[in-house]
Nucleic acid binder design. Structure first.
Lengths: 340, 340
DNA sequence: CTGAAAGCGCTAACAA
DNA sequence: TTGTTAGCGCTTTCAG
């Protein structure tokens, strides 16, 4: 583009060696006389020099970049986590590259490959699969967002899924629901049931409710998933006798389901109760507004960044796990039912 | 971390020079004998070598990174543009770093500085200000998303703002509205009125309607902005006689306004008509659903990427401008009024 | 406090 | 087809 201007030009103009210039621009306290410092600074000014961080990073074996992998950047839940992590990381002069896996294992694998390219100092991710070994194999400091059964080996942050799920279920119980369905994603290896699903089964057991296998839906955590849920649900024989509420894996799905139910002539918040998970902004604006479990997105994002940062400082320290509690937000999508 | 393994180790194991290894790993068709190629490939396999793209890029004066600056990544409008641009760019082996300016000039300036760090090959942005000179000064190929009055010098994509605004205004006129307010952001230098605002004034003139300065609101394109709009509007003396519709700068603001109006005891879609801009998913799920102008987000994102890519190919070619038409989406937030 | 010199991992002439 | 050599811009010993 333009004749690149490097420390060598600055050094020449300032009448010092490039070492001295280097000592000035990298703030790591190399001792420079006030006079030299002045000369260098004016030279920098005059030439409009900016430090080439790529070159510096290259030399220092450090890129100043962090890869953040999320499943759906268009979901406000993830964009806010992203933003918070980014804000925190940028304070420490790291730049963040956001990768969108779209819930696809294939795309995730592609990103793992990118992560091995030497471009990044670290990795924050919500992985689609539970293949912790693959993440470890990247050989980069990594932080997981969201609990994973096998992820003892990774720094982890997220919401306490057990507690959040339980909160929603208890609320449905208290409001008189006895035929509760759940819609989660059960992906990949069948040997692993999602945490949410487990909590659900424990809950049924505890309350002495029968487990109706038809009422445990596995759909995507997307608008499409919400529509699919409704489609499958209303096709169940005698469904109105078999289900009075459904706990959705996230708000995106729940909101989509609200709309799909209404289109199918089922009135959400009356004929059927819905509870979401996340509390994205749109949850407050649907009709009826969505009862959901709020997750502290900003805290989670910032925590992920902090965990990574402290892992940079001490690569050898034992993995940490920092979970936040959720908060039940009561709105209009759950009916109050007299006890059956 | 681990004893870095470089082409030099590969070369040694394969019994060739590092140039040969380089020729193999960079696919730019340097001729290599089948035999050598085999040897190198097995060595790579055996050693688990991965190319250090930072080093390669450093040498080639190319980083493979593009900086994408958006004002609000949590707004689905921008996250979808981001995703589309990213998808296109990744096809060409570029990685995308997303910067969130939060409509802040200060943050934008910080990002311009980052852009000058040598980390990026190019820049795609929706700038907060109209300071094209500052963007040019970065010295990087740049593509602007969204029309800018002064941006003849930059490759530009976006929606035809004039047409989109006009569409909305005409629709309000046809449905019998005669007291139309507008809510846009008028920032920075007062000498510059937003395009939208100009179209609005032209429209009033053409229809012989009086320009009521109180009805041109300048608020942020955010939830906060929507609330502020309503707050200011309902405090206008005799407002019910002075305004029957408002055209909002984007959907986020419009949806927030819908809710704020209802809380203020004003029924949207009846007492007041609202038109948004963008057609984000939530627009379909509000109550009443939002009438708005749809913008082709994916096309815009992909076009931005394409413009940048072709600018890489030919840095000298004249700037292009590719605008897409908007599409009016009729829903429930606009009342049908008998002619006054 | 400062300069000379040696690379970080890779690519690109240029010779052979 | 291959190897040798010279860096990309910066940091960092090591002498001075």
């Amino acid at each position: 583009m333009k004749p690149t201007i490097s420390i060598i030009e600055v050094a020449r103009l300032a009448g010092v060696s490039k070492s001295t210039v280097s000592r000035v621009i990298s703030d790591r306290g190399g001792s420079v006389s006030p006079k030299a410092l002045d000369a260098v600074n004016s030279a920098i000014q005059e030439l409009g020099y900016t430090r080439n961080t790529i070159a510096a990073g290259f030399r220092m074996q450090r890129t100043g970049m962090v890869l953040l992998l999320v499943p759906d950047i268009a979901n406000p839940f993830w964009s806010e986590i992203t933003r918070a992590a980014q804000d925190r990381l940028e304070e420490e002069d790291y730049s963040v590259v956001v990768g969108n896996t779209d819930w696809s294992e294939q795309r995730e694998t592609r990103y793992y490959k990118l992560a091995r390219s030497g471009r990044f100092d670290g990795l924050i991710l919500n992985s689609v699969t539970d293949d912790i070994a693959a993440i470890l194999a990247i050989g980069l400091p990594a932080v997981m967002i969201g609990e994973r059964a096998e992820s003892q080996a990774l720094d982890t942050t997220g919401t306490d899924t057990r507690m959040a799920t339980r909160m929603a279920l208890d609320y449905l119980w208290e409001t008189g629901h006895r035929r509760i369905a759940i819609a989660t994603t059960e992906h990949g290896s069948e040997r692993f049931l999602s945490l949410r699903r487990k909590v659900y089964e424990d809950f049924l057991l505890e309350k002495g409710l029968a487990l109706d296998a038809d009422l445990a839906f596995s759909v995507k955590l997307s608008e499409e998933g919400g529509r699919e849920l409704v489609r499958e649900l209303v096709e169940l024989p005698r469904w109105r006798d078999r289900v009075d509420a459904v706990l959705c894996g996230n708000d995106i799905m729940a909101i989509s389901a609200i709309n799909a139910f209404r289109e199918a002539g089922v009135e959400p918040g009356k004929d059927i109760s819905l509870v979401g998970m996340d509390d994205i902004p749109a949850a407050a604006h649907t009709f009826p507004a969505l009862t959901t479990v709020r997750k502290p997105r900003s805290l989670m994002g910032a925590m992920a960044a902090d965990l990574l940062l402290s892992r940079f400082e001490d690569p050898a320290k034992p993995p940490e796990r920092r979970l936040f509690p959720g908060e039940l937000v009561l709105r209009g999508s759950v009916a109050k039912r007299g006890r059956a």
